[in-house]
Design a protein around this nucleic acid. Structure first.
Lengths: 244, 244
DNA sequence: CGAGTACTTGACCCAGATCAAGCCATGTGG
DNA sequence: CCACATGGCTTGATCTGGGTCAAGTACTCG
C-alpha cells in the first residue's frame, strides 16, 4: 500500500525530490538525474505524452511490435529481454525511474526485444515522431537525446567485456544500490534468475558470490533485501570493469 | 601501391560503386550501404568537413581527448579500444568504410576509448555541433543519425551475449566477409590477437576454431587471407547469436 | 498449514584459458 | 644468397572458473 502512495505521487510530479521511496529505497533515486537532463519541461509542454500503468509482469511491448514511441520510466521498474529460438530468456537490461526504453526500436521501426514490468509501474509514452519534431523547437532536447543514446551505448559495451563473476556481481550491486549511503537497505525487484541472466552467469553463481560477499562483510543480504556495508571493498573488486 | 590508388579514388568519390577494392576485397563494400543512409549529399553540402589520412597504427584520437566531431571511415580500417589499469588492451570494435566513429564521446564531451588505424586509412571529420545544426535543415539527417546510434546499440548488446567461441568466430566471419560472394578472398587487416580480444577469447582459441572451420570445409584460410566456402554452414553455427 | 517458488549449498564436469613448443613468413646483416 | 632473428600463427598438454546437476532450506501466498 505504501508503494501505491508512492506511485501516485510520482505520477503527478515526475521530477521528485531526493526523498527515498518508502517501500524500497531504490525507486526514485534515478529521477534525480532528471529524465532527459534539463529538457523535460520542454517536452511536457510540447508533447502529447500519456501515462501507462503496468501491473507486475505486464508487458509494455513485445519484440517486433511496431516502434512508435520511447517510454520513460516514472515509477516501479521493468526489464527488457529477448527470447531465443530455444525459448531461453536473455535479459538485456533493467530499467528504473528516469530510464528510457525503446531506443533499440529506432533503427528498423520495430522493437528488437520485449519489455515487461518487474513490479507495478508507471511509464510515460513519448511518441517518437513528435519528439523529433520537438528537437527543432526545444533547445537542448536533441543534444540530450543523443547524450542519452551515447550513454546507453557505453553501458552496453561495458557489459560486453569479459569480466569475472565477482567483478560482474560487484558492479551490479554498485550500479543498483550505489546511490544510497552505506547500510541503507534496498529491495531488489527482480529474482536472482534475472540478475544472473543479465550478467551472463548461472543463478547458483550469483548466489554463491552474494554469500561470499556477505561473509567478507562487503554487503548485508537476505533474499532480495540487500545493503552495502563496504563500498570501497566492492569497488576494488569491481574495479577492472569500472575503469571503462 | 594498389591500395594507394584505391584510397585516392575513395577520397574523391565517397559514394563508390560496388566494385571491389583490388588490394583486399573488403575495404569498400560497406560504403554501399551509404554512409548516413541517404543524407550524405545533404551533409557534404552543409558541412565543413575535412579529410584525414592516417598511416598504419596512427591514432585518430585518444581516450579523454575532448570530443568535437564524429568520424566517417572513407577507406582503410580502424579499431577502437580501451586500455585498462593493468595495461591490457580491450578491443571495442573494428571500423570499415561507412562506419561512424566517436559516438561514445557524445555523452560526456570526451572520448571514452582510443581509436587507431589498422592500415593506411582515410577518414572524414564531421564537427558534431555543425551536424546537430544541419539536422534542422537537412531533412532526414536527424532520423538517420538516431538510426545509426540505435544500430550501434543493438550491435553492442548482441556482443554482450554469452555465446560459445565457435558462435562468436562464425558471427565475426559473416559480419566481416559476409557481403562478398562465396569464395572471394578477403585480407583481414587485423592480427589474430585483436580478433580474439574483440571476441573475448584467447588468440589460441580463435586459431583452433579457424582451423576447425577449414577442416570442415566452411572457410578457406591462410593467415589473414580468408574466404567463405559454406555460408549456410557458418550461419547454422552462428545462428543463436543472429537471432537477436 | 501445505504447496509452490525462490534461494542456497555441495559435488562434479567441461569449454576455454594458460602454458609451452614448434612453425612459417618476412626482414636484416654478413 | 644464405644464416638467423623476429613476430605472428598454429598445435598440443594441462588447469580452472564457472556451469550443470542434485539436494536441501526458506519465503510467500492461498
Amino acid at each position: 500500500m505504501l508503494s501505491i502512495d508512492t506511485q501516485s505521487r510520482a505520477v503527478s510530479a515526475p521530477r521528485v525530490s531526493q526523498a527515498q521511496c518508502h517501500s524500497c529505497g531504490l525507486r526514485e533515486q534515478c529521477l534525480v538525474a532528471t529524465a532527459l537532463n534539463d529538457s523535460e519541461d520542454g517536452i511536457s509542454r510540447g508533447l502529447r505524452s500519456s501515462r501507462l500503468r503496468l501491473k507486475q509482469t505486464e508487458p509494455l511491448y513485445w519484440r517486433d511490435d511496431g516502434f512508435s514511441a520511447l517510454f520513460l520510466v516514472v515509477s516501479g521498474s521493468l526489464k527488457s529481454y529477448n527470447v531465443d529460438l530455444d525459448g531461453n530468456e536473455r535479459v538485456r537490461g533493467f530499467h528504473f525511474p528516469g530510464s528510457l526504453l525503446g531506443l533499440d526500436g529506432i533503427e528498423r521501426g520495430r522493437h528488437r526485444c520485449h519489455a515487461a514490468a518487474l513490479e507495478d509501474s508507471v511509464v510515460c509514452r513519448m511518441p517518437f515522431e513528435q519528439l523529433l519534431g520537438l528537437c527543432v523547437s526545444v533547445s537542448g532536447l536533441q543534444a540530450a537525446l543523443f547524450r542519452r543514446m551515447s550513454r546507453e551505448l557505453i553501458h552496453a559495451e561495458t557489459l560486453a567485456g569479459d569480466y569475472s563473476a565477482a567483478e560482474r556481481v560487484a558492479t551490479f550491486i554498485l550500479e543498483t544500490a550505489g546511490e544510497l549511503r552505506d547500510g541503507t537497505p534496498v529491495k531488489l525487484p527482480m529474482p536472482r534468475r534475472d540478475i544472473a541472466n543479465y550478467l551472463r552467469l548461472a543463478t547458483e553463481t550469483v548466489s554463491r558470490i552474494m554469500t561470499d560477499f556477505r561473509a567478507r562483510g562487503l554487503i548485508e543480504c537476505r533474499g532480495r533485501q540487500i545493503s552495502i556495508r563496504d563500498r570501497d571493498g566492492l569497488r576494488v573488486i569491481a574495479e577492472p570493469s569500472l575503469s571503462n
